[in-house]
Write a protein that binds this DNA or RNA. Sequence first.
DNA 1: ATAAGTGCAAAGTCTTTGCAGATGT
DNA 2: ACATCTGCAAAGACTTTGCACTTAT
Lengths: 138, 138
Amino acid sequence: MFVKFTKNQQNILEFLKQLKGEITAQDLHMNLKEKDFKIGLATVYRTLKYLHLQGIIQERITPNGESLYELIKDSHHHHLNCVNCGRSSLLKEDFCPINKQLTNWCASQNFKLYYHTLEFFGLCEHCQNEVNKANLSN
Amino acid sequence: MFVKFTKNQQNILEFLKQLKGEITAQDLHMNLKEKDFKIGLATVYRTLKYLHLQGIIQERITPNGESLYELIKDSHHHHLNCVNCGRSSLLKEDFCPINKQLTNWCASQNFKLYYHTLEFFGLCEHCQNEVNKANLSN
DNA sequence: ATAAGTGCAAAGTCTTTGCAGATGT
DNA sequence: ACATCTGCAAAGACTTTGCACTTAT
């Protein structure tokens, strides 16, 4: 996978394997530093980009513009994303409308499918009132 | 919808109505300037944010990190996104796996659903060879 | 008259890049 | 030995914000 397999790469991959859920590049960097691994933020970004390119991890960008990464697994989640507060809540695990027919269709396009994201956007319960008060001076 | 309905707001909304497809904030700004509308980039960003908050337009963030906006319509597209070159290609128009059952489920969560995005990530035909040569020095 | 909207420039945030030095095979 | 990988600091890109001025109602 990697051309060399350095300590940094091992540490990142190991961390992602242990991780339940998603993490930002910056949080991942902090976590590794806290474990006394010496690693630069740029290396974290470079490694995540490479892992993404290789189809090992997936990326999801939140309404706040944060990139979240996690290993690609068989089981995955989709989210309800509030366009006001930016919070995401998980959809029940077994919900996923992607069927084999579609997967096959991607293959027929010579597109090598790594993963998909399905995200719902709107207002969470709390924000529905807030938004009525919004204007362009906010 | 807007508290006031200024020339800027009218111009942006009119432009989005004419537009087929998606556009970035910066391109939208350029287009309006070319039509000799005097408007600041910040105003474009503020207006798009407000329209998004109100559920008038939707946002999609590409693998390159660009935010693309368009009016929410009944018909919509999903995309195949190449994680290498970042190009997106449209899925056939009639494909959408989201059913009424799911829509109802969102409602039952007191989540006010505006729109959804469903995106597929992987390698386009052209990039499948390229990626084999990739390493962390790139 | 007043709150809402605006333009500009500055600031903020996340991410990428150039380069010299370190590392794995 | 050599290309790959790394850290650091600088650069880059996009977006947001503060503030004084303008505009719509």
